[in-house]
Amino acid sequence: MIWIDLAKLGASLIAIIGVAWLAGRMGLGGDLRIRDADHAKVLANEAIYGFEATEVALDRAGVGALLKDAQGNQMLLRRHGAAWVGRLLDPAMETRLDQGFLTISTGEPGAEKVTLNLGEAAQIWAAGMRRLVRA
């Protein structure tokens, strides 16, 4: 009986890997990008309901953004597969500024560091995040 169960599990594992591989080969998932600041605001409000962004810094490739609301809350919006994830920034998050690139680590298990190409805006937002840390 145990051999039948093991055979079923083995077949299931092969099927799972095969389906996921096929999904990749078929080009499923797409290549999502943030079109512009207004699009980023909509996505931010969808990520955290009620977040009304007043300022936006958009990654040049459109794969993420930083947003600020009227109360001074700041949000990191980043691509996650074929979807978007938003996180409010807090003092525990690590940031690193390298010219026009701002790297943010939310410190969440399993979440990769995000590097945004913000150009000249990177320094301004990095300073804003330092103020957030001091607040």
């Binding site: 599990l9 299931s12 594992l13 099927a15 799972i16 890997i17 389906v19 996921a20 591989w21 096929l22 999904a23 990749g24 078929m26 080009g27 499923l28 998932g29 797409g30 999502l32 597969g81 074929a82 979807a83």
Partner: peptide
């Protein structure tokens, strides 16, 4: 359904998400 998604809306499937979901099932 993956064939349907490829024709109509590729973003409805995400390979890593699919692998994750099926691994949950296993």
């Amino acid at each position: 359904e993956m064939v349907w998604a490829r024709r109509n809306a590729p973003e409805k499937y995400e390979p890593k998400d699919t692998l994750s979901s099926l691994s949950f099932g296993l």
